[in-house]
Amino acid sequence: MDLSLAQVPRGLVHVIAERCKECNFCINYCPTDVLEYSTEINAKGYHYPVVAEGKEDACIQCRFCDLICPELAIYTTDASATQSKERDAG
């Protein structure tokens, strides 16, 4: 098996900050530790998740943060699909 041919999916993290209630599930259960608390707060006073510095390319699009979020405040999309589309358009 040639591992160099295996492609690791890349994800883009979308956060809907105003829905977050700071339960910490996404930050704690991210397998690649992509997320951390924001320094800012949302309208209800909660620190929502943001992508940690240096982890911009670490999301593997497993979607677990999306599935485990009780507030439907986070989801991921396939970065390679988005970027190849942009590349084709540009």
Binding site: L12, H14, V15, I16, A17, R19, E56, E71, A73, Y75
Partner: peptide, 24 residues
Amino acid sequence: EQTVHPTADVHPIDHLLRADRLPH
């Protein structure tokens, strides 16, 4: 090239939820 993670207002599953009532 650095990946920029966008912000969002709607969730892809919002059409099956009464999103105007969120946050619950």
